[in-house]
Each structure stands twice: as C-alpha cells, then as structure tokens.
Design a protein around this nucleic acid. Structure first.
Lengths: 138, 138
DNA sequence: TCACAACTCTTAGAAATCTAACTGTCAACA
DNA sequence: TGTTGACAGTTAGATTTCTAAGAGTTGTGA
C-alpha cells in the first residue's frame, strides 16, 4: 500500500467492511446505511431541523430533503413546521420509527463489537483516543 | 456520543470530512471520490479484471460495470477481452487517464497530509499500526 | 463427451444522491 | 417601513449505485 495515502486507504477499507457487514441486516429493515445513521441521529436529537442533519452528515440540503421524503413515506418519521419559523421543518420519530431504531442501533452495536475484537482492550482505548483527536482537529 | 458505537461514528465522521475536503478538487477533475479511488487502483494493478475491482472495493459486479462504462466514456480507461478467457475484461489506463491519475493522487496525498497534521508523529505511527491491525482482522 | 454448475460481465429498472435553480420566509438596516 | 440579502427547504434533471435477472464462457464430474 502506498505510504502517502495509507491512513485514508485503511479508513476507507475498514469502513467498507463495516458497511458490508451491516448490509444484510439493514436490507431486512428496508434501509440503507445512511438512512439508518439518520434515524439514529434523529433519535438522539428529536425536533432538530433538516439543516442540522445536512451539517451533521456534510450532505446537501437537497439530499436530506429527498432522504427524509423516503423515511416519511416508510412511516418512520414525521415533519412539522414550527409555529415560530415557517421556513423550517422539525423532525420527529414516529412510533414505527422508534421500533425500527432499536433494531438499527443493534446493527451498529454489533459492528463495533466486531471491530473491537480485532485488537486488545488497551489498543482499542488508544485507537478511540486518536480517532477523537483526528476528528476534532479536522 | 454513544460509547457503544463511538469507534464507527468517529471513522464515519472523519471519512465524511475527508470526502468533503476532496470534493471541490475532484469536481474540477470531473470525477467523484469512488471514481478517483478506482483510477488509483487501476494504476497500481494494470490489466486487472472487473471482478478484482468488485472484490477490492466490496461492490457489486453491476456497480463496477456501470462505473467503468462512465470512466471509459470519459476516455480515462480502456477495456480488452483477454484471448485466454473471453468472460473477462482487462482494464488499462489510457494516456489521458494516466494524466488525470497524477492529479487524483495529489488530492489523496493532500488529504492524508491534512489528517497527519491533527496529531503528532508518534501518535500518527500508532494510529497507522492500529488501523492496520483492525483492517487485517476484520 | 456432455450436462450442469460456476464464473464474469451486462442490462433493466428502481432508488439514492448530486448540482443548479427555484419558492417562500425571516432578519437587518437605511 | 421597505428593500435586500440570508436562510430553509423543494424540485428538476443528471449521474451513480443498487438488486434481480439474464447471456455467454469456462470448468468439472459422471
């Protein structure tokens, strides 16, 4: 592997494997990875607006718009225009969405468990520390 | 951040930022990130067949097929059926593809430099070591 | 040898994502 | 108060990626 790009090559490789591992289960839930991540984020920040999602995932507003239309059609979320600002739409999980979210969370938890098993506990703690620093400073 | 999924959340976050950083330059080259990665891989393994790409990137054969049609239309690659196995197609960079590849490589090198600057040298070496181990054992 | 499975790639059609342009709402300030 | 720019979200159309099904080629075992 080329040393000049090894770090990002490794991250991409690991990410691909994680997505592949999750693919089967997510497909049973009728979601792709991005939709699953979005449901998770909504669960943690109910009432957020679409722009918050665009910022969190570094995606275009139009992409969020389309994705949420999909999640709304599947009955996983509800969108409401707040009375104090008619430009925005607040997003909430539906009852059905909350149920699916539990399954989605489990998929990601299992993924992390799998990752954790590849190195020992001390190494894992160090990896987390380093990734935090990288993420924070980028 | 949820501890149960923090490792994968961090990796996804960092990956998103890398892609976002590269987006402008890649767009000038008329390529997206996946297409850039594919050109890199072809450059390193000229004469490989489509299946090799599907395996390397954990993508479906159909996806590779479509993507290569795009790269072929743009004149960046050539595909040839080898005489000893008519099922396959070997892939080569065109002259134009080789030129673009130099620019693409620079984008990824710059990305890694940016990542490297977020932590000190010793930490960076340790990060590489840990990512290698994770990637290998997954 | 020949039937059948495996392999490699393609196509068709659906879904997701992107860019660019647009609508409607709010905020700032002369 | 009225204009102007910023903000939040949508739509249209192109591109990418996916799944499912299919075509042609090769390998294998009876």
């Amino acid at each position: 592997m080329d040393e000049q790009t090894e770090a990002i090559d490794l991250m991409r490789s690991i990410t691909s494997k994680l997505i592949r591992n999750q693919a089967n289960t997510m497909q049973n839930l009728n979601l792709n990875q991005q939709q699953g991540r979005t449901l998770q984020y909504i669960g943690l920040h109910e009432g957020l607006i679409q722009k918050d999602l665009a910022d969190a995932f570094l995606l275009r507003g139009a992409t969020i718009s389309s994705m949420l239309q999909g999640l709304e059609q599947k009955g996983y979320i509800e969108r409401r225009v707040p009375s104090d600002n008619e430009r925005q739409k607040q997003i909430f999980l539906s009852e059905r969405g909350s149920k699916v979210l539990a399954d989605v969370n489990q998929v990601f938890i299992d993924s992390q468990k799998k990752l954790k098993q590849t190195i020992n506990d001390k190494e894992y703690q160090e990896l987390i520390r380093l990734l935090r620093a990288v993420n924070q400073n980028m």
